[in-house]
Structures are given as C-alpha cells and as structure tokens.
Write a protein that binds this DNA or RNA. Structure first.
Lengths: 252, 252
DNA sequence: AAACATTTGTGCGTATGTATC
DNA sequence: TGATACATACGCACAAATGTT
C-alpha cells in the first residue's frame, strides 16, 4: 500500500467528554459546520469512518451515530465500499405563478435541456378532464418529456393540452426540447401556474431508468395546472422529480 | 373449463377489441371513472383479479396491466393475499402564507390532534441558525411533535423557536397539543409562512414508528420558516409528512 | 475470471451514567 | 434506597458492496 503520510492536521480534534453534551452530537455539529462553511466542498469525500473515529478519539459506533444525523439532514451520503461524500446541494425549484423549468434551471446557473420521449392525441381520462375542466373523452394532446440540468436528469412526466388549441405543439416541442418555447410559438407563452399538488413515493422501474436513479430512491410527484391569463386551464402535467436532486421551494 | 353461470351483472363489460386502443387502457379508464365518480368508494375492495379479468373478457395479465397504471396513479393499492383496495384520498394540505395544521385539518372536516414527544433548549445548529437569522450557537427552543387527523398520524417533526422570545412555549404546547394555540397565548399568533422547502425520501425506522408506516413507505420532508408580521423569522420547522396520506397543494 | 483490499453496514455483548418510578 | 428503563459509549466480528490487481 502506498504511503499515507497521514494528516491528523493539527492534533487530535478534542471533544468535551462529560460535558453533558453527547459526543456524537458534538462531532455531528463539528462536521456540519465544516460542510456549511464550505471547508468540505460538495462532492468531497470524507475521511473513512476509521480515520474519523481515530481523529475524534471515539469508537467507530459513536462516529457513525454522528454521521447518521448528517445523513438524515441530507448533508452527506455513504456508499459501502466507496466512502462517504458531501452531497451536492439540491436544485432549488421555486413553485409560483411563473414556474418554468428552463428559466429556473438557468437562474441556478445550470444548463437546461430536455427531450420528448413520446406524444399522442388521446381522449381525456377522468383526472385530466377534471383538471382541464373539459368533458371526459375530449381530445387532448399528451407530450412525454425528460428534462435535465447540465445533462443530469431532473424530472420526467406527461403534459396534457387541450388538443384543438395546441395544434402541432408536439412537433415544436420535440424540435426545441422545451414546452415553454413551443407554447410561445403558438402565442400561449403567457401561461401561469394555477395550482400545484405534491406527493411522493418510491421510484418505479421506468422512472429509475429515465432519471438514472438507484433502487430505493424516491420521486416527488408534482401535478400542475397551468392556465391562460384569464385563468382558464390550458395545460395539466404530472411530472416526477428526483427527490435526491431537487428541493421544491414555495415562497409566500 | 365448465361454464359457471357467473354473475356478469348486466352482461359482460364490453371492451372494444381491435379498436386501436389497447385493452388494458380501456379497462384502466373504466375503473378509474368508477373510482373518480364515487361508485367505488375509498377503502372499498375491488373484485379479485380473476373475477375482473373474466368480467372484462381478457386474460389476467391484461387486467393486471390496467391495475398497474391505477396503482401508479395512486388510485388503488394491492396487497398480496388480501386484495386490491381503493385508496383513501390524501389529505389536501394547502401551503401558503397562513398555513396552520389544525385549521387545515378542520377545514377538511377532520379532527386535528397532536402530542409533544419532547422539547429542549439547545444551541442552534448551522441550518437552524441560518433559517432563523441568528448566530450559530444562540439558544433555541426545540419542540418535537406528532400531529394527526382523526387519530391517523399525518406528520412528525421538530420546531425551533428563538428561545428568549418563547419562554414556556413548550409547556403550553404540551398542554394544548397545538403550537398555534401556544403561540397565540404568547401573543405570537399572527405569524405567517415565509418559505417552504419540500423534498422526499424513504421513511426511516423512527418515522415509521411515529407515523405508523409500513417498510418502504416514503415521507415528504417539509422545512418551513415562519415569521412575525414584519417578516422576521420566529420559527423554523422540519416536519416529515406521510406521503401516502398527504398531498401538498400550492395555489398561485 | 478470480482473489484481494478497502470501506460501509450490521449484529452482539458489555459497561456506565441518568433519569423515573 | 432500590429497581427499572433508556441513551450513550466501547470492543469485536462479520457481512455486503465496491474497486483493483
């Protein structure tokens, strides 16, 4: 094994034994501060549990108890055999009247992308008809998309439009990779979000494939109703967001 | 197989073969309509897959394909050995400037409840300090709660208050089972939601215990910052909602 | 393909201090 | 005072996942 010229930067980090504060808590806060203050950058690998427990002068179990709270807070993530890593901060995705994927991703300094995975004109099912305030069975245009930021898939889902108002929207969307752009082309660029419904569940096989998720990961299911300036519904969408990579934000 | 003069209530439900629409899709929409229109009530048990496939005159595989889409939509839920059931509609939980648990649950016609599972004065960790705009280590009061509707646990989580402004808040909350009530008592009843952040993950052991969730269920992690009328933060909370039982709603 | 080292994940046993009854 | 329960902390061992040789 190559020489490790081990760090132990200053000395051994002192934890206050018998101070009334649990050792694991002190350690958790110490590491949390390092992450929040940026000394441990996103994506950085933490020292191994063995190293850390030695550095803090505690048993590995105690150290692991500290890491567990950080994992729960979403600050770090561990993989057996690889190590423990500082998690990339999730994409902050504000939900409001003017919610548009590409604008949001751009505002976060990342490059939005998307591709159409399918589209079809079909009769409205009960949920779609109710959301769009049309009759059950009326024709709607469904567009399925996967959208990403810097090439990392963020969300996949279906978007339903009242067919007669959206001729060829699917073709334009497929060409541009953006529904917003396509709707602008049709003079519907001024839509606004009327309502958003959020729930969550385990990702299924298709979602794991489209979003490149490991087994056991979760998705947030976000249903949205978008309307024209007169608040008449023109679009209903049901998208699944990778819960690992996105944090939905509502400002009031 | 002998002909069993089985029910076939009216006749056998006709599905249009060779109509260009997949059989499973027709069946899914048929059942979905029954649920949405209330002919199949929440909690009701569907006929067995064998019965249904016979009624629709399709193979059980085809029928299962239809049920799969309904499961994905969250309309039904199947348990091996028990059957397939119409899911209870989730509690609609609006997120806005005046988000209050008990008011929301009451408005849905259900009885809100809650109990304090712990409380403590502690130094602010980095995330709490940042949310409340106080210095790291300043004293905060943490109250842990489980809250329910009609006795069904909905959410569990921690609420942090700036300690000096909230003396004895924990005692009042424990007595009333409601933080809103407690804050009113202290003259802080007029708080409003400043920001809400939402993500999701698998429920851990403690959450499964507190919320009575089966293994593999997910929780939505909702972080909220509440402020006084001058929009100064007075409370930060991190609550986990049962994703099975709650749908967060944002109106714009 | 197979063997090996590294690293996290899990289980069991033990001991201690601190509340609570 | 004692009995009990609980959280904390330590030690040892092995399983499971990953990466390298």
């Amino acid at each position: 094994m190559p020489d490790n010229t081990v760090m132990t930067p200053a000395a051994l980090d002192d934890v206050a034994r018998g101070s009334g504060v649990a050792l694991w808590k002190q350690i958790a806060e110490r590491i949390e501060a390092e992450i929040v203050e940026g000394r441990l950058a996103p994506g950085a690998r933490l020292p191994t549990e063995a190293e850390l427990s030695e550095r803090f002068g505690v048993n590995r179990h105690t150290l692991r108890r500290a890491l567990a709270t950080l994992t729960e807070q979403g600050l770090i993530e561990a993989t057996p055999g690889r190590g423990t890593f500082v998690r990339e901060p999730p994409l902050r995705y504000p939900i409001g009247p003017r919610t548009r994927f590409s604008e949001i991703v751009s505002a976060e300094g990342r490059e939005p992308g998307g591709r159409v995975t399918g589209s079809q004109v079909e009769p409205a099912t009960a949920d779609v008809a109710k959301a769009l305030k049309i009759a059950l069975g009326d024709e709607v245009l469904r567009i399925d998309m996967v959208r990403d930021a810097d090439g990392v898939p963020i969300t996949c889902g279906s978007h339903w439009y009242i067919a007669e108002r959206c001729r060829d929207l699917d073709l334009i969307a497929a060409a541009t990779g953006s529904v917003t752009r396509a709707m602008e082309t049709l003079g519907l660029g001024d839509y606004r979000r009327l309502e958003t419904r959020i729930t969550a569940r385990l990702a299924d096989d298709e979602e794991r494939r489209l979003l490149a998720l490991a087994p056991g990961r979760t998705v947030m299911v976000v249903e949205a109703i978008n309307g024209d300036p007169q608040r008449r519904p023109i679009q209903f969408s049901r998208a699944r967001f990778s819960a690992d990579r996105v944090q939905l934000v509502v400002k009031s």
